[in-house]
Amino acid sequence: MTSTPDPAAEGHHPLVGQPHREDEGEGTVAEAEAKAAEISSPERPLGRLGKRLNRRSPFFIGMTGAAGIAVTYGVIGLLAGAREVLIVVGLALFLAIGLEPVVSWLVNRRFPRWLAVTAVFAVALTALGGFLAAAIPVVVEQAAALLAALPDYARQAQDHSTFLGRLDERFHLRESVEASFGPGGGLTDGVLVAGKAVLDVVTDGLVLIVLTIYFVADLPRIRSAMYRLVPHSRRPRAILIGDDIFAKVGGYVLGNLAVSVIAGVLALVWLLATGIPYAALLAITVAVLDLVPVIGSVIAGLLVSLVAFTVSLPVGIATVAFFVVYQVVEDYVLVPRIIGIAVKVPALVTVVAVLLGGALLGVVGALVAIPVAAALLLLAEEVLYPRLDQA
């Protein structure tokens, strides 16, 4: 019984290009096959690794440059086409890193990771479900009351002796509303667009929750895979810097949520105390907008103040004063004590980062701008500045 020949023994695989002819390649291929048979061995049937290419050759340099341009152009095109999906994925990873300190805290207290992840999301989803169950009926009721009151507001806007009338006279608010929702203004289209927007938000929210759960559950493996992309000689330093960045992001996310909850609760107390209508709806709006640094709380204060002026001029002025005082307290007391410990970013860098993030990625960009700026500052202090000082 004859043994099966080694596929590379003759330098020509028995399952490729058969029948084999002696005149293949007029000697050039035959010579290469003979050489292939020589370098093939039982230990290395496919031969040893060849010599490196000459990276200084003009051909190699030209092809590398052309390939780099083509790949860069293709990657930019792919990123632009998948922008919305990448934003959801990036936000999910951002939230996963933000929840990681809580999960790791439980793991350090002898919780299995799967149990720690389950406990964190069970508490988070239960709190979210309870909040929605309590808030949605009130919000729907107050939103319906707001819609019912719109004709009265329209009449006030036509009366130039009222505050709304003076605002309309200066900014032409009624004309803008009529152009958007009046006859021929696309009311049906506006409703359809609003319905599609709500559906997109719900869908993206569900995808965001699922992705965040997966990212949190598999974050140790993701972390290891990221660090393996760093050269071995630089990996220890990269781990120290990277873990510090992760900790900053986690502290920022949890701290920002805490500050937003405080803003919503204080706003609700003020609205109920002063008798401003739609208290629950406005308080939720304040809490959500306060998640966006710098500009979020300002926009929320303006919206609530406009509603407060419909009650009376003194209530409106008092509401403006309340939000100004709260903004000072948040900027100089709450944020330094809750977020500033983890994320130390100068005020100027904070404002510039939020503006740039908002211009590039909208609300999501403004939300992640501060931890990204903190990461860049850390890299600059630990890597860039020491290199420049030694140059």
Rank of each mutant, 00 (worst) to 15 (best):
V325N: 09
V328R: 13
G81F: 08
T4E: 14
A36T: 06
V307T: 12
G186H: 02
R174N: 08
K196Y: 13
L187W: 05
F163Q: 06
D204W: 03
D159W: 01
Y252T: 13
A375N: 02
R387A: 14
A127N: 08
L379G: 09
A287P: 09
L268H: 04
L173D: 00
P314W: 02
W105F: 15
V138A: 14
L15K: 12
A280P: 00
A273S: 03
I299G: 00
L211G: 06
W114R: 14
D23W: 02
S104L: 15
V107S: 06
H20Q: 13
V349S: 12
A342H: 13
V292L: 06
P371K: 04
G357F: 04
T203I: 09
I69G: 10
V298H: 03
E84V: 12
R83C: 08
V16S: 11
D152E: 15
P137I: 00
V320Y: 04
V345M: 11
F309D: 07
P314N: 05
V325A: 15
L106Q: 05
Q158L: 12
P277C: 01
L187I: 02
E38K: 02
L147M: 13
V29F: 04
H232A: 15
A37R: 07
V311R: 07
V261F: 11
G250A: 02
D218C: 12
A9M: 09
F60T: 15
I341Q: 14
L306N: 00
I97S: 08
A300G: 00
A267D: 00
V372S: 14
Q158E: 11
P14M: 05
G65V: 13
N256S: 15
I341K: 15
L379R: 08
V329W: 02
Y214R: 10
R44K: 12
G242P: 01
R387C: 04
D23Y: 03
L49A: 14
V259C: 03
F322N: 02
I276R: 00
S57C: 03
P183Q: 04
G358V: 09
L199D: 03
G65A: 15
V298D: 03
I213Y: 08
T118M: 14
E31S: 03
L146N: 10
D6T: 15
L86S: 01
L306M: 12
G81M: 07
A373C: 02
V198E: 07
H232W: 08
F246S: 13
E24Q: 13
Q156G: 00
E175F: 10
E22K: 11
V352T: 07
V335M: 02
I299R: 02
P58N: 08
A194V: 10
Q18E: 05
R21S: 12
A145M: 11
N108I: 03
V193K: 14
H13P: 08
S233T: 14
I299L: 12
A353M: 05
L199E: 09
P371W: 11
F309W: 01
A70M: 13
R387E: 13
M63A: 08
Q18W: 02
A37M: 10
P137R: 01
A347L: 10
A374R: 01
A217T: 07
L79S: 08
A122R: 04
Q390V: 11
K344P: 07
V320D: 05
L93W: 14
I136Y: 11
R56A: 05
T310I: 09
A373F: 12
V324S: 13
S176E: 12
L79D: 07
